[in-house]
Amino acid sequence: MKARVTVTLKNGVLDPQGKAIEGSLGSLGFEGVEGIRQGKVFDLELADRSEAQAKADIEAMCEQLLANTVIENYSIELL
């Protein structure tokens, strides 16, 4: 089974990379971009298990490694 984890910076955490990307889009002539936050996506392939088990397992992975919950939020999507 497949799953996707999306990790994003929490509100209030500065994102200098997002700011730089925003500036670069502006210099390419894209107008009206009012903010960009850079995040990460992880595509997981898991041996089969129940959906509930998969969610619980991936949540543990996020808490322990995939996200730094001091600065990042995560969301889990089973595909």
Partner: peptide
């Protein structure tokens, strides 16, 4: 040390990049 939880907070990309 911050990643291991032995110290609080986090070290992010330098503001200047």
């Amino acid at each position: 040390l911050t990643e291991a939880g032995l110290l609080p907070g986090a070290l992010m990309r330098n503001a200047s990049l």
